[in-house]
Design a protein around this nucleic acid. Structure first.
Length: 497
RNA sequence: GGGGCUAUCGUCUAGGGGUUAGGACACCGCCCUUUCACGGCGGCAACACGGGUUCGAAUCCCGUUAGCCCUACCA
């Protein structure tokens, strides 16, 4: 009875990989992983004018960076290859093999028909109807009699193909409505009369079927790829009844639908560039860990429950991927939209950075480091990472280590005035003469210096920071010295002695 | 205009007839401290509005308002 769990994420390559899309993909991925099912990545490139190969690459890279691995889908970088038994996974490559036969079948069965109305004609009809303050519906209402539904057009002239939608009395309807039980929103119903005959295939070359539209391809593909659960954005709710009519016309088994709420910006409007970063790539560049992005995104609209209990402490908020997969349940997803909370992402990122090992952090951090980074020893990297692991982002960690690659070109005036006192100079000279920078040795040496000079550690540490980094801020002072090394410290100290 | 969805602290949310309406982030305060941070402790802060139903409504019903989605030969 229950079929194998298969979910899919089907972005269109018409721009950046949007953070909202990633969240939807994440839910699909979590759901598939939770149930031991498969997760498919499908490229919806039927919008010829806006789809590009470059955007497909961005999607593939973004998904990979996020750790959202797909079981079926395109092979990154190779348009002709794919993994999975139901390919190809780029819609334009399915035209002849899948879509056209499906359109022809519908045509021959009289469930769809050829339409010769031109774009201009339609625009004019729409304008006159809407001028009366009435919604335009193709061939219905005030447009009744103008449609091609009963005209039996042949293929001798260019034509688009429309699906004959139910008119209200069909037996498969639920009290005249197309209805379904949404996995997230519960029962949803749309009056049949509110839908009109929509285009399933655009106008093609004379006598030919044109490129099918989104709503058509989705149904053919989801069926052909055995998708069992269609988890997608809320914005598709209104498309569902159209698709349901198509499932019925084609005699396909329906998948289950789950519409996840949208992600809004701080001001409650749909998340857009205006709110800052929307593309997943930007989050990578800002120094977020993929795991933090996954957590933050998942926690928008989803509340994990452990024995029916929502998180009751900061600790419980910080779920690992394994925990998310184990706890994931569609019934714990909110019906209402959530606003994107950058502060929380930052907090999660910081926490995840703190609890990661330096080895786990290294590959991610390397992205933000100069070439010199890879020439450093393991030991050096370990100390560098551990000394800055309190940072909010990888980028911040990298900035905190910037002093390692470049001697200060200027010095914070106030800091110089405050810390570079006459009293501290002798101590600075003594530090310059030190040659063992191991932590314990420095500790001992500093204790001695501090005592003989009558200084507090704070006085010496701050003076050193100013001299070495140009500012009164740096990692713990012993680490700062060790990372720079004896020679470099002496060089930078020279001008202050 | 039509159809659909939604509504608890600033934000993410728990709760779903009787609770001091709980937690997290952010913010504020105190403590710790070799800088910046981290950390610890504490504080501020919410049931959109109006009607019902009920002994009792944040919770159930109706309406209003607001926001969002669809209403394309976009996806």
């Amino acid at each position: 009875m229950s079929r194998p769990i298969v979910t899919r994420f089907a972005p269109s390559p018409t721009g950046m990989l949007h953070i909202g899309g990633v969240r939807t993909a994440l839910f699909c991925w979590l759901f598939a992983r939770k149930h031991g099912g498969r997760f498919i990545l499908r490229i919806e490139d039927t919008d010829l004018s806006r789809s590009t190969d470059d955007n497909i690459r961005i999607i593939e890279e973004g998904m990979a960076w996020c750790g959202l691995t797909w079981d079926e889908g395109p092979v990154p970088g190779d348009p002709t290859a794919w993994i999975g038994e139901h390919g190809p996974y780029r819609q334009m490559q399915r035209m002849e093999s899948h879509y056209k036969p499906a359109v022809e079948k519908l045509l021959s069965e009289g469930k769809a028909y050829r339409c010769r109305c031109t774009k201009e004609d339609l625009d004019a009809r729409r304008a006159t109807v809407e001028a009366k303050g009435v919604p335009f519906q193709y061939g219905r209402g005030h447009d009744a009699g103008n449609g091609c539904r009963h005209k039996q057009h042949d293929a001798s002239e260019p034509f688009a193909v429309r699906l004959a939608m139910p008119e209200g009395h069909e037996t498969w309807l639920d009290e005249g409505a197309i209805a379904w039980t949404d996995l997230i929103k519960g029962r949803l119903a749309f009056p049949a009369e509110s839908l009109d005959d929509w285009i399933i295939a655009r106008t093609g070359e004379k006598g030919q079927i044109g490129v099918p539209t989104y709503n058509f391809c989705v149904v053919v593909d989801d069926t052909g790829m055995n998708v069992s659960h269609v988890l997608r954005g809320d914005d598709h709710v209104s498309n569902t009844p159209k698709q349901l009519a198509l499932y019925h016309a084609m005699g396909f088994e329906q998948p289950q639908f789950g519409h996840v709420p949208m992600i809004l910006g701080k001001d409650g409007a749909k998340l857009s560039k205006r709110h800052g970063a929307t593309s997943i790539t930007e989050y990578q560049e800002m120094g977020f860990l993929p795991a933090a992005v996954r957590l933050a995104l998942a926690r928008l609209s989803w509340t994990p429950k452990v024995d029916g209990q929502a998180p009751e402490s900061a600790e419980e908020e910080l779920l690992t991927d394994a925990q998310m997969i184990e706890l994931f349940d569609l019934k714990d997803i909110q019906k209402s939209p959530a606003r994107f909370d950058m502060d929380k992402l930052v907090w999660m990122n910081q926490k995840l950075i703190q609890r990661a090992s330096w080895q786990e952090l290294e590959p991610h951090l390397a992205h933000f480091m100069p070439d010199a980074w890879k020439n450093k020893s393991e030991d050096w990297k370990r100390v560098a990472i551990q000394a800055t692991q309190k940072g909010k982002s990888l980028k911040e960690m990298a900035q905190a280590l910037a002093f390692c690659w470049q001697a200060p070109e200027s010095f914070d005036e106030k800091a110089v005035e405050k810390f570079m006192t006459a009293a501290v100079k002798p101590a600075l000279r003594e530090v310059a003469s030190l040659h063992d920078y191991e932590h314990d040795a420095l500790q001992t040496a500093f204790n001695g210096i501090l005592e003989t000079q009558g200084l507090k550690l704070k006085d010496l540490a701050q003076a050193l920071r100013v001299a070495l980094c140009g500012q009164p801020v740096s990692p713990p002072i012993f680490d700062t010295l060790w990372l720079l090394g004896v020679e470099e410290v002496r060089t930078r100290l020279q001008r202050w002695l």
